[in-house]
């Protein structure tokens, strides 16, 4: 399952490296990671998306807390929240194709932000799903370049982010790694 964490970190050199290194070290695969300033000077906020089970998510949260520059960690996976991704998509469209592309851009409420004789650059924000689908419909016209920010997320309203509880019930059979090939 995909988990989304909002991680508040002190804006100090090397912090991004510490967070990224933690994921690598603990063998979690980052789906996306974004970072930027927050409303508080000196504090940055990361949105990290990871594919793991609930046990993994909890351990990850615990590990993140152990990093000294990390101030707060919210797992907002199950919190009602707004998630957005921003994409710039360059399409090589001329002639008729160009008109079709412009219609699609309208339908998706995206914007054209650069026009050159051979190409258009389209800007769009939205959920990852929406962007994925726009990319799919544009693909036949020739997507020559694309850049995406990765997911940023914010909980709705003023309710604090809820944290995951420990899953209850019968534990799945295998949890730890295979230890049969451990060494001397």
């Amino acid at each position: 399952m995909v988990h989304t964490f909002a991680v508040y970190v002190e804006n100090k050199p090397g912090v991004l490296n510490r967070v990224a290194s933690l994921f690598r070290r603990r063998a979690f695969n980052i789906e996306s990671l974004t970072v930027g300033h927050t409303e508080t000077p000196g504090l940055s906020r990361m949105t990290v998306v990871v594919d793991t089970d609930e046990y993994g998510a909890r351990r990850l949260e615990a590990h993140l807390h152990k990093l000294v520059p990390v101030r707060r960690v919210d797992n907002i996976t199950t919190t009602p929240s707004i998630t957005r991704d921003l994409a710039l998509i360059k399409v090589a469209a001329t002639g008729d194709a160009r008109t079709h592309v412009m219609q699609l851009v309208d339908v998706y409420r995206a914007r054209i932000v650069d026009v050159s004789p051979e190409s258009l650059v389209i800007e769009t924000t939205g959920t990852e799903d929406k962007i994925d689908s726009l990319v799919e419909v544009l693909r036949p016209y020739g997507v020559v370049e694309m850049v995406r920010t990765g997911r940023v997320a914010m909980a709705r309203g003023l309710t604090p982010a809820t944290r995951l509880g420990v899953p209850r019930g019968v534990p799945p059979a295998d949890i730890g790694g295979d230890v049969s090939n451990c060494s001397v």
Binding site: Y55, R58, R59, A62, H65, K66, P171, I175, G176
Partner: peptide, 11 residues
């Protein structure tokens, strides 16, 4: 004391 140790190898 280290929460990251809980439910790591053994549930």
């Amino acid at each position: 004391i280290d929460r990251a140790e809980l439910n790591k190898n053994v549930r």
